[in-house]
């Protein structure tokens, strides 16, 4: 690893610290300076990026909204009175009321839960499928790889929205929870291919490393090598891809709900509210604009977060 030595040699002297912490101390013999890991480098990079902190803040905010919506609004989103139709802001309803006389802001806050639930669970299942398929294809190679890669190609060839329409039409009359899990299922089943390719390629890279050969010489079986040695290396790129995918899953859920085949009332979802607000946009615009802004900011936050982490992990961009 001559790269490491050159990096260490050209590093600023002030950054070197002796055991007692004084700057500029010479390297101690027998106390080797700990080389920074890839993740450590990435973290140093990320810390200085405002876009990382902004998107992280938004993600945490939306997660808090999904977990405890009552923290953000005192109003009940299901407390709708027709006499308040399109009424202006009053009380806790800072954005006024929508066509049905519900609090626009409260509905937007409570809508975070369905979106994040669908996004996170779809990303989780996507990750599980992608890790399994990518690991098997990358580790065993040969006919396993050939077979699984063709499956990936075929699933990649299926248009997501069209397939989702057909799959979800089947459960259009089922109960709320069934529909929620149907949406998650559809997004996971159709959305795992990109992540699986990423995992496969990082498994192939890790497989050829010396430490894998060492582990095998020590008598480790396939299962142990895959679980203990290769998985930790394949995980980081997969998580980056899944963060971006989480954003697009949230957008997909809203789109399906907007079309009327995803979630349905009384479940509160931004997609449903955008559709409802769209119909009455000539009378009042806030019921359209508020859920739109919530949805767009959430999706953007996840995409920007994933983008920033990916850039930080890419040594070519340093």
């Amino acid at each position: 690893m001559s790269d490491f030595e050159t990096v260490a040699a050209t590093e600023n002297q002030a950054a070197r610290r002796g055991p007692s912490g004084e700057p500029g101390a010479p390297d101690q013999v027998g106390v080797p300076r700990k080389p920074r890991s890839l993740a450590g480098d990435a973290w140093r990079d990320l810390r200085r990026k405002p876009i990382f902190w902004i998107s992280l803040f938004l993600v945490v905010l939306v997660a808090a909204m999904a977990a405890v919506p009552a923290l953000f609004t005192a109003n009940d989103p299901r407390d709708c009175v027709l006499s308040r139709q399109h009424a202006g802001p009053s009380g806790g309803a800072i954005f006024g009321y929508d066509f049905q006389g519900c609090d626009t802001y409260a509905r937007a806050v409570y809508g975070a839960r369905a979106s994040l639930l669908v996004g996170a669970l779809s990303a989780l299942f996507t990750g599980l499928i992608a890790l399994t398929v990518g690991m098997l294809a990358g580790y065993f190679g040969r006919w396993v790889d050939a077979l699984l890669s063709r499956v990936i190609d075929i699933v990649l060839g299926i248009p997501l929205l069209l397939a989702a329409i057909v799959l979800l039409k089947r459960v259009s009359t089922s109960s709320d929870n069934v529909r929620l899990f149907a949406v998650i299922f559809v997004l996971a089943v159709l959305g795992w291919t990109t992540a699986a390719r990423v995992v496969r390629s990082s498994v192939i890279t890790a497989k050829g490393q010396d430490y894998v050969a060492a582990a095998r010489m020590l008598g480790a079986g396939n299962g142990r090598i895959m679980w203990r040695h290769i998985l930790p290396n394949a995980l980081a790129p997969a998580i980056v891809v899944l963060t971006i995918a989480l954003g697009s899953f949230i957008a997909a859920e809203a789109t399906l709900s907007f079309l009327g085949i995803g979630l349905k009332a009384p479940t509160i979802s931004w997609g449903i509210d955008i559709d409802a607000g769209r119909v009455h946009m000539r009378e009042a615009a806030t019921p359209l604009v508020v859920p739109s802004a919530f949805l767009a900011l959430t999706v953007l936050a996840f995409i920007m977060l994933g983008d920033a982490i990916r850039d930080a992990f890419d040594p070519k961009l340093r």
Binding site: G247, A251, A254, T255, F258, G271, I274, D275, G277, R278, M281, A285, L288, V289, S292, L295, A296, V299, L300, I303, M304
Partner: peptide, 14 residues
């Protein structure tokens, strides 16, 4: 790239 069509289309229309 980050803003979904269901936001972009109705907002542009409005």
């Amino acid at each position: 790239l980050g803003i979904p069509t269901i936001v972009l289309a109705p907002l542009a229309q409005y």
